[in-house]
Simulated assay, not measured.
Amino acid sequence: MDRFVRALIKWQAGGRPEPARTLPVAQVRARYAAQAAHARGGAARDAGIETKDHVLDAVDGEFGVRTYLPPTDRGRLVTYLHGGGWVVGDVDTHDPVCRRVAGVLGAVVVSVGYRRAPEHPHPGPLRDGIAASEWADRAFPGRHHVIAGDSAGGALAVGTAMHHRDHGGIRFAAQLLVYPPADPYLRSPSVRRYGTGYLSEVDDLRWYYDQYVPDPARRADREIDLLGADHRGLPPTVVGTAEFDPLHDEGVELAVRLAAHGVEVHHVPAPGLVHGYLLMADIVPAAAVATKKVLTAVEQMLAPMPMAQ
Rank of each mutant, 00 (worst) to 15 (best):
A131C: 06
F172S: 01
V108T: 15
A303C: 08
A36F: 01
V91P: 00
G85H: 01
P236E: 12
V110L: 08
H38P: 00
Y277K: 02
P180H: 07
M307W: 10
W11E: 13
A157D: 14
T241A: 10
H164E: 11
I49Q: 04
P189Q: 13
I147L: 11
P141D: 10
H163K: 07
E18I: 02
E201M: 04
E223D: 15
L234I: 08
Q175I: 06
H120S: 15
T51S: 12
L279F: 03
A152E: 05
A44L: 13
A270Y: 02
R74E: 15
L126H: 09
I224D: 04
D210N: 10
V191A: 08
W11R: 11
V268E: 14
D150L: 09
V158C: 12
Y277S: 03
L279A: 15
V252A: 10
L205Y: 01
L258W: 00
A220H: 14
D221W: 11
I130A: 04
D183I: 05
R218S: 14
A297N: 05
Y185D: 14
L254E: 02
G197I: 10
A297S: 06
G142T: 08
A117P: 11
T51H: 12
D230C: 08
H266E: 15
S133W: 04
R6K: 14
A20L: 10
G64R: 14
A182M: 10
E264I: 00
R257K: 12
E250F: 04
L295V: 06
H275P: 06
D150W: 07
H144G: 05
V55N: 03
L226G: 01
P269K: 03
D90H: 07
P96F: 08
Y68H: 06
P125V: 02
G129K: 01
L302S: 11
P24W: 03
E264M: 09
R218T: 13
G197C: 13
A270M: 03
G251I: 00
V238H: 03
D230I: 04
V59F: 04
H167R: 14
G195A: 12
P125G: 12
S188E: 14
V28M: 04
V289S: 06
H38E: 13
R31A: 06
A37F: 04
R171E: 15
I170D: 06
H266P: 03
P189C: 11
G83V: 00
A281H: 11
L278A: 07
P71T: 08
V109D: 06
L23N: 05
E50H: 08
Q12F: 15
Y114P: 02
P181L: 07
